[in-house]
């Protein structure tokens, strides 16, 4: 495991945990798309089917369980917690996410490494992760602000690394690290592995990862604007 991948894993993990803790502590989930969170839960459950068949490392197993558990906990809070669920923007979160699920499954049936139960669901989870942010993007456009997304912003780990690596800025520093920062680490990790490992090949994951990162660029754009203007993050109405 290289440092980029570990940094990516940690920032991803912390962004999920921070979101969960923030929802639970403030008892509100306003601005968060339940559909995106449900898609992420589906992504983790279908990708980690190998929990039952392959053992890679204790780290790997524990991280998989934590990813599944924390994402399911977010979904549970938003759907069933008697206080939290009242603040859910049901009327704005109308993206038809079933089409995404169906489309990704169809693609996985066609494009996969091997036609086995596990491999098809693995490919499905990769494709779905790439587009799972779309309901959240639509909800943001409709609600017109991203204040609540600060729930997904991270304060400590990776913040310095991220600032140095990505922004390379010394004039004015961002105060929080955004939830999508882990994408940058994963891309560095793939570049590193491509050059250091002889047989590293995961075109499906890399291309999907790039598409996912491109979709997140929308967030990056607004984040950059607010950083440049040194202002609160606001989307155009």
């Amino acid at each position: 495991m290289n440092i980029f991948r570990f940094a990516g894993d940690m920032t991803h993990l912390i962004s999920i945990l921070v979101l969960l803790l923030k929802i639970y502590a403030t008892k509100t989930c306003s601005g968060i798309s339940l559909k995106t969170q449900e898609l992420y839960a589906l992504v983790f459950v279908t990708r980690y089917l190998d929990l039952f068949t392959d053992f890679i490392s204790v780290y790997n197993t524990v991280m998989k369980l934590v990813f599944i558990g924390s994402t399911l906990a977010i979904v549970w809070c938003m759907r069933l917690h008697r206080v939290v669920r009242r603040s859910y923007n049901r009327e704005l979160d109308t993206f038809r996410h079933y089409f995404l699920v169906a489309g990704c499954f169809a693609l996985a049936l066609v494009l996969h490494e091997k036609f086995t139960f596990q491999e098809v669901f693995w490919a499905f989870s990769i494709y779905l992760e790439a587009v799972a942010i779309l309901p959240q993007l639509v909800l943001l456009q409709r609600s017109g602000n991203v204040d609540n997304l600060t729930g997904q912003y991270i304060f400590f780990l990776g913040y310095l690394t991220f600032s140095v690596l990505i922004l390379l800025s010394c004039s004015s520093q961002p105060t929080e690290m955004p939830f999508w920062a882990y994408r940058a680490f994963y891309i560095l990790n793939w570049i590193y592995r491509y050059f250091t490992e002889q047989h590293f090949s995961r075109w499906i994951a890399c291309i999907s990862g790039l598409i996912q990162t491109a979709l997140y660029a929308d967030f990056f754009y607004y984040y950059f604007l607010s950083w440049k203007n040194n202002a609160t993050l606001k989307l155009p109405a």
Binding site: D50, D54, N60, E113, R202, A205
Partner: peptide, 10 residues
């Protein structure tokens, strides 16, 4: 095999 294909990742 897991190392080679990258399926050791999360």
């Amino acid at each position: 095999a897991h190392q080679d294909t990258g399926k050791d990742e999360l």
